[in-house]
Simulated assay, not measured.
Amino acid sequence: PPHRRAAVLVPVVFRAGGPQLVLTQRAANLRDHSGQVALPGGKIDPADPGPADAALREAHEEIGLAPESVRLLGYLDPYLSGTGFLVTPVIGIVPDDAAFTPNPSEVADVFEVPLPVLMDRERYILEARVWQGRTRRYYALTFEDRLIWGVTAGILNNLRERLYPETSTHPAG
């Protein structure tokens, strides 16, 4: 079947201590991916002109981020999930005074991870699990008491590979 299209915002905010990436902890009552760490985003609706519009709309619905406050930088490579979604990551700069208001029906928490933590190649572990009769491989990493895995970790690893190709060194690792 054709892939279902989705988009996520990869929101970067610059703090005094350096750049941070904004992530969410999904609400425990959700049917899909409940309780998981995620980037704000979701399905691209027919009314969305494109992936960036969908990512901004979803970020507004999920964490109250005003779409007009985000400075879009571009796209990462699309990511195909094991559940059939073709996810387009959209990178954007979020103002440091942005207020995040989680929608409790979708998001349990909004938190930030220092970008150097996510750019550390040593943190990414390739794991495997049998799901629906097939072995699925996925990246996972931890930050404090949170497990970041699956599509989110895959997208973040793609960002890391884009910014710090394996042939170069980077400050975090």
Score class of each variant (00 low, 15 high):
D32R: 14
G35K: 15
V130S: 04
G64C: 00
V37Y: 03
S105E: 14
I148W: 01
E166G: 12
R134W: 11
P51A: 09
F111C: 10
G154K: 04
G50M: 04
E161V: 03
P95S: 06
G50C: 06
G50D: 15
Y139M: 02
L73P: 06
P78F: 07
T83H: 11
E106P: 01
L9H: 04
R121L: 02
Y138I: 08
Y124K: 07
I155R: 06
D77Q: 14
A7W: 10
P102S: 02
R4L: 11
T101C: 06
G64V: 05
W149C: 00
L115W: 08
D120S: 04
D77I: 01
F85I: 02
V10P: 00
N157W: 12
L56H: 01
A66V: 00
L23E: 03
R71P: 02
N157H: 13
A140H: 03
R4S: 12
R71A: 13
V70S: 06
G41V: 07
I91W: 03
G154W: 12
A66P: 01
R129S: 09
A27P: 11
A98G: 01
V37Q: 09
V8H: 07
S81G: 09
P165D: 08
H170Q: 15
G173R: 06
E68I: 01
G64E: 04
D48W: 09
D145T: 08
W131V: 14
P11G: 06
V107D: 05
A54Q: 07
G133Y: 10
G82P: 08
R134Y: 10
I44R: 03
G173A: 09
M119I: 06
L159H: 00
P116G: 01
L141Q: 08
D96Q: 10
G150S: 04
E106K: 13
E112M: 04
W149F: 14
Y164M: 10
W131Y: 11
A38M: 11
S105R: 15
N157K: 15
L118S: 02
T135V: 12
L115C: 08
V117P: 07
V37E: 04
